[in-house]
């Protein structure tokens, strides 16, 4: 199922490791970058490349917040739900996000643009409450700041779409 170029790249990455399993996360990331998420078929393929049992890889994938085992939106918002952010207004931030996006935690917007997920402490306690969007950090969140970020991402996505439309 993997494109040849990606497969060869992954085989090279794995061959450089002393033990293939060292590269498990890296391999999953690369495949996820290509497909957007790790499907069961992708997991099987990754396990084969890494000479691991699929069940071992599954354990890792489900433990690690940044591997998505289901399809996600273009922008994955991961809101920190650990102690510091909780103290600093996580709940109202979450409520605002849910209202703006019209989804609950763990869901994706109907236009496929945003997915909202919880994350464990991301180490930005000094700028709490914080969240990640496609692994970029946004700290000291307020309702207004969130609105600005979401609007910007939405228009960005729209302009890309228009560009693509004009090109075709």
């Amino acid at each position: 199922m993997l494109p040849d170029q990606l497969r060869q790249h992954l085989q090279k990455v794995i061959s450089e490791a002393e033990y293939p399993r060292e590269k498990a996360i890296e391999v999953m990331y690369e495949i996820q970058k290509h497909f957007g998420y790790m499907s069961d078929a992708a997991m099987q393929e990754a396990a084969r490349l890494l000479t691991m049992a699929p069940v071992e890889l599954e354990e890792l994938a489900t433990f690690y917040d940044f591997i998505f085992r289901e399809p996600v939106g273009k922008y994955v918002i991961q809101i920190c739900d650990s102690a510091m952010c909780w103290l600093d207004g996580y709940e109202s931030i979450l409520e605002h996000l849910c209202a703006r996006l019209n989804i609950r935690l763990g869901e994706t917007t109907s236009d496929g643009l945003f997915t909202l997920l919880p994350a464990c402490c991301i180490g930005y306690c000094d700028r709490s409450p914080a969240m990640l969007i496609n692994r970029r950090v946004y700290g000291r969140l307020t309702a207004e700041k969130i609105d600005r970020i979401l609007d910007r991402l939405r228009s960005l996505a729209e302009s890309v779409q228009t560009d693509q439309a004009t090109m075709s």
């Binding site: 049992a53 699929p54 599954e58 354990e59 433990f63």
Partner: peptide
């Protein structure tokens, strides 16, 4: 290798 722990 049937069983594993899933999630956290």
């Amino acid at each position: 290798d049937v069983w594993t722990k899933v999630g956290r």
